[in-house]
Measured scan of single mutants.
Amino acid sequence: KFNKELSVAGREIVTLPNLNDPQKKAFIFSLWDDPSQSANLLAEAKKLNDAQAPK
Rank of each mutant, 00 (worst) to 15 (best):
K1H: 12
K1D: 11
N3A: 11
K4F: 08
K4L: 07
K4C: 15
E5M: 12
E5R: 06
L6I: 10
L6T: 08
S7Q: 13
S7Y: 14
V8K: 13
V8H: 11
V8I: 13
A9N: 04
A9W: 06
A9P: 02
A9E: 09
G10D: 05
G10P: 02
G10M: 15
R11G: 05
E12T: 09
E12A: 11
E12P: 01
I13H: 01
I13W: 00
V14G: 06
P17G: 05
P17D: 05
P17C: 10
P17K: 07
N18P: 00
N18C: 09
N18K: 01
L19N: 01
L19A: 00
N20F: 06
D21V: 08
D21H: 08
P22Y: 14
P22E: 15
P22T: 15
Q23N: 02
Q23P: 01
K25Y: 12
A26L: 09
F27T: 00
F27I: 03
F27R: 00
F27G: 01
I28G: 03
I28S: 02
I28W: 05
I28H: 03
F29Y: 10
F29S: 14
F29P: 12
F29K: 15
S30Q: 14
S30Y: 09
S30N: 11
L31M: 09
W32L: 11
D33E: 12
D33Q: 13
D34C: 11
D34L: 00
D34N: 08
P35N: 02
P35V: 04
S36A: 07
S36W: 04
S38I: 15
A39I: 09
A39F: 07
N40L: 12
N40G: 09
L41Y: 03
L42T: 03
A43T: 09
A43W: 05
E44P: 00
K46N: 09
K46Y: 06
K46F: 03
K47S: 12
L48A: 03
N49R: 01
N49V: 02
D50R: 07
A51V: 07
A51P: 01
Q52K: 04
Q52V: 03
A53Q: 09
A53W: 05
P54A: 07
K55D: 10
K55P: 11
K55H: 11
K55I: 11
K55S: 11
